[in-house]
Each structure stands twice: as structure tokens, then as C-alpha cells.
């Protein structure tokens, strides 16, 4: 067989559109995931049992169920409670809630990686739990977390392809649309896969750069 990518050229603008939607969904999803994750991760180590249990349950459930089901629950399930969300919003919330679970676990690991003595020094100096967390523990935890966090970002970009099931025209959806009119399946999905690879490489590289910058300081 021969590959002929030229049939895809007329649909170039669609791929660009899809790429932009994927990038947007990933960035929004990640931002939400980070906010939720920091909260959940911090609660995971707080010395108040019910809060710790709550955070642990969240992480347990989120990590133990497929993202696809979580997306379906939000997009198809919530309307029965009278909550109708636009597909893109539902998608971002789904990704955010999902990655919040994973980021939460990363944050917990990062926090627990800070030596106990740093807490104790702060405590004797009169710093409150919250102050210690904010000024001393989290800034260090973030550094410990960066490698795992980079992995999570890459995973999230790839998993955003599930948004196609909510009929969001992100990259994978665009691929399906183009394939259905050109029948050039192999070329289309090679291109789509290549774009994902490019995206994940850029994201991974950016985080590695950040890691280096922080280590030097």
C-alpha cells in the first residue's frame, strides 16, 4: 500500500481546530485538576480523621473507575438531576475531577517526602499548621512532585481523546470526521497520533525545563 497524506490537506484547518480544542481542554482540565489535587492532597495528610478519610475516598473512587464512565456520568447522568452542561464544560469538569484524584495522590507523596523535622522546627517557632503547609511544606513538595506531575500532564493530554465520545470536536473527533469523508484511515490516524506525540513531547519537555530551573536555584 502507499500512503497519501495529500488527501488530508483540504482538512488542515479542521486538524488545527481540533488541536486547539485538545490543548484548551487539557490546560483547563489540568488547572482544575491541580486545584482539586492540591486540596485533596493536603486534606489527605491533615490531622483530622474525617477530612483525611474523605480525601482518601475521593482518590480511591476516582482512580478505581474509568474516566470514560466519569465523563458519561457528568454529561449523560447529571441531566436527570436537572443539571445540563454543555459538552465542552462537562468534558473539562470530568477531566479536572479525574486528574484531581491523581494529582491529589502526587501531592500527598510530595508532602510526605518533606522531612518531619521541617514540620517540627516550624511548630516550635510558633507557625500554625496552615502557615507551615503554605510557606514551608508545599513549596518543597511542588519540587518533589514535578516529575510525577509531568507524567500526569502527558497522560491527561492523551486521555482527553475520550472527549470525542461526548461529540466534542477535539483532535480525535476531527480524525474520525476526516476519516469518514476521505476513507484515508491510516493517514488520518497516523497524523492524529503524530500530533498527540508532538503535544506530549512539548508538555514533557516544558516540565523538564521547569524542573531544571528549580533545581539550580
Amino acid at each position: 500500500m502507499t500512503l497519501d497524506f495529500s488527501v488530508l490537506v483540504p482538512y488542515g484547518h479542521m486538524f488545527v481546530q481540533g488541536l486547539l480544542v485538545t490543548v484548551k481542554a487539557s490546560l483547563f482540565g489540568l488547572s482544575m485538576g491541580v486545584v482539586i489535587g492540591v486540596l485533596v492532597g493536603a486534606l489527605r495528610v491533615v490531622p483530622i480523621l474525617p477530612l483525611r478519610a474523605l480525601a482518601a475516598t475521593y482518590i480511591y473512587v476516582i482512580r478505581g473507575t474509568p474516566l470514560l464512565i466519569q465523563l458519561f456520568l457528568i454529561y449523560f447522568g447529571l441531566p436527570s438531576l436537572g443539571i445540563n452542561l454543555p459538552a465542552f464544560v462537562a468534558g473539562i469538569i470530568g477531566i479536572g475531577i479525574n486528574s484531581g484524584g491523581y494529582v491529589g495522590e502526587i501531592v500527598r507523596g510530595g508532602i510526605e517526602g518533606v522531612p518531619k523535622g521541617h514540620w517540627e522546627a516550624a511548630r516550635v517557632l510558633g507557625l500554625s499548621y496552615g502557615q507551615t503547609m503554605r510557606c514551608i511544606i508545599l513549596p518543597q513538595a511542588v519540587r518533589n512532585m514535578l516529575p510525577a506531575f509531568g507524567n500526569e500532564f502527558v497522560t491527561l493530554i492523551k486521555e482527553s481523546s475520550l472527549l470525542s465520545t461526548l461529540a466534542i470536536t477535539e483532535l480525535t473527533m476531527v480524525g474520525q470526521q476526516v476519516r469518514s469523508v476521505t476513507y484515508a484511515s491510516f493517514e488520518t490516524f497516523l497524523l492524529v497520533g503524530g500530533i498527540y506525540l508532538l503535544l506530549t513531547s512539548v508538555a514533557g519537555g516544558a516540565l523538564q525545563l521547569l524542573e531544571k530551573r528549580w533545581q539550580v536555584r
Binding site: P115, H118, E120, A122, V124, L125
Partner: peptide, 16 residues
């Protein structure tokens, strides 16, 4: 904290 300060074997300075 006004009453008592503590010095640890491992210093416990905050590295960042």
C-alpha cells in the same frame, strides 16, 4: 514560641 526555642541534631533548616 516566646517561651522556648529548640535546636535539632539535623538543623531542620528549610532548604527552599
Amino acid at each position: 514560641a516566646h517561651l522556648v526555642g529548640m535546636i535539632f541534631q539535623q538543623f531542620n533548616l528549610w532548604p527552599h
